[in-house]
Amino acid sequence: MKKLKILLGISAIAVAGFFMVAADHIDAPAVAGGTSDITDFYAFRAQDQDNIAFVANVQGLLSPTASASAQFDENVLVEINIDTDADTVEDLLIQAVARDGKMYVFGPFAAGSSAGLNSTINTSAPLTVVDITGYNDAAVTATNASNGVKAFAGPRDDPFYFDFDQYNEILAGNAPGGFNNPGTDKFAGTNVLSIVVEVPKTLIGGTGTINTWLETKSK
């Protein structure tokens, strides 16, 4: 059992009906550019429509050169919170932590005492273990045969499109015409470290709409 404390609070709250996304690139001063920095969080109905996919991205703005040596921090716990009854309190957790070239994904499991500022890794929860995919390698995935949870972890192209420079010009009052069409993707050619967890809807429950958010926690 391992205690961790919050370094970065909530990346964003998203409602996972069909597709929701939240992005937060290097704008949290306490963790900007660090190994616990959350860039994006996605939740959407998977290709198998009986499943929900959760995508947690950390360590943004990695160049291709940096991506080749980038690693998940073994001292950082990535925690997906799921609220199934619309009270904005987590009912279920999915925890992911890297060890020796593998990503260990625990859950989903009832939040209970594992939630909050000091999380305990629930080592008794259902476990899915996947080898971390190397940069430019074919994707490695793993499935827990007992509950159908699937997992992937490794560097991937940053999927978030944003004309950040034009955005700053708009804020400064220098762009009365607003955004350009097309804009310039500030994140083009950069990578993130991704953790993807696909979960059968039967393990989530609830009324059909969930709230979900992402936290990173560190020793």
Rank of each mutant, 00 (worst) to 15 (best):
N51K: 14
Q71E: 14
S67A: 15
T65H: 13
L61P: 00
S63H: 08
F54G: 10
S36Y: 01
V31N: 09
D40E: 12
D40Q: 12
S36N: 06
A68S: 08
V31C: 12
G60R: 08
T35M: 05
Q59D: 07
P64W: 11
G33A: 10
S36K: 00
I38E: 10
A66Q: 15
V58D: 06
L77H: 03
R45Q: 09
R45K: 14
N75R: 13
V55L: 13
N57P: 00
D48I: 02
I38T: 09
A66P: 05
N57I: 10
D37F: 02
L61F: 03
V78W: 00
Q49V: 07
F54C: 09
D50I: 00
N51V: 01
F72L: 13
L77P: 05
P64C: 06
V31I: 14
Q49D: 10
L61R: 08
A46W: 06
I52D: 05
D48H: 12
Q71K: 15
S69H: 08
V76H: 02
I38V: 10
A43H: 08
V78E: 02
T65Q: 15
S69F: 15
T35G: 01
A56I: 00
L62T: 07
A70G: 05
R45C: 02
S36F: 00
V31Q: 09
S63G: 05
G34D: 11
A53P: 03
S69I: 10
Q71H: 09
D40C: 14
F72P: 07
I52V: 13
N75A: 07
E74M: 05
D48L: 01
T35C: 02
A70T: 04
F44T: 01
S63L: 12
A46Q: 05
D48V: 03
V78T: 11
A43Q: 07
S63R: 04
F72A: 11
G34P: 01
D40K: 09
D37K: 00
L61T: 07
L77C: 06
A46H: 15
D40F: 13
V78D: 04
Y42C: 06
I52M: 14
N51W: 09
N57Q: 12
V76A: 10
Q59L: 13
F54S: 12
D37L: 06
A68E: 14
T39A: 03
D73H: 10
A53F: 00
I80D: 01
D40A: 10
D48A: 05
F72S: 06
L62G: 07
D50H: 12
F41E: 08
A43L: 03
Q49R: 12
G60K: 06
G33Q: 05
N57F: 02
D50Q: 11
V78Y: 03
N57R: 15
D50V: 02
L61K: 09
Q47I: 00
F41G: 03
N75C: 02
F41I: 05
L61I: 09
E79K: 14
D50T: 13
V55A: 12
